[in-house]
Design a protein around this nucleic acid. Sequence first.
DNA 1: AGTATAATTAGGTATTGACCTAAATAAGTA
DNA 2: TACTTATTTAGGTCAATACCTAATTATACT
Lengths: 104, 104
Amino acid sequence: MDTFAALADPTRRNIFEYIVRGETSVGEIVERFSFKAPTISQHLKILKEVGLVQSRADKQKRLYTVRADGLAEVESWVQLQQKHMSGRLDALERHLISNRGEDK
Amino acid sequence: MDTFAALADPTRRNIFEYIVRGETSVGEIVERFSFKAPTISQHLKILKEVGLVQSRADKQKRLYTVRADGLAEVESWVQLQQKHMSGRLDALERHLISNRGEDK
DNA sequence: AGTATAATTAGGTATTGACCTAAATAAGTA
DNA sequence: TACTTATTTAGGTCAATACCTAATTATACT
């Protein structure tokens, strides 16, 4: 599973959005979401595997935080595509240009 | 299927990357990728449904181009998360700060 | 030691999704 | 009207995934 696939699941995006607000225990997340603890635990495992979050232990609890560089890969991919797009005309633009001056 | 899910599949990202280089027919994509035509067609259908690409007809061919605003949702989501992160200290930073000056 | 709390692992089910082949549609050409 | 080319739709298989309950691990507390 890579970062893109991890973010494809809306529940995982929601969990990420929750953790980004501040360090969060698993139990806290289980309370806010309508899923059982094992489900949340699996989602956290995936988010951790792809580097979107990290955890530390505090007594029995595991506290999760987001990783600063976790979204870097996605962000740079998106921006590269945007860059390619901006230097390029789409079909409509080409059509308008090819018909420029035609007063039909 | 939403934009995030559409981009979760690496083949679809590859197809998008190919189309972003310029208007492309289905057949051209089938040639470059090692998948059968129906598979490519399904991927294009999904990319179109989520607004990442658009198509126009030219004789029997369908020519695909990327849509300029197709990645906007993903980009703005990522940037919002980055914004939340930048104003926030992670677990390591908090640890370093709380132990500041301890010369142990 | 025994009990409570916090989270993960194991294992099962049902759905989704990514591929395929074969058949259907649509448009162009002889 | 055939025949070719380009693409999509239909239908099936197999793997991945998102849930769940039950059991396990790990730590804290009495």
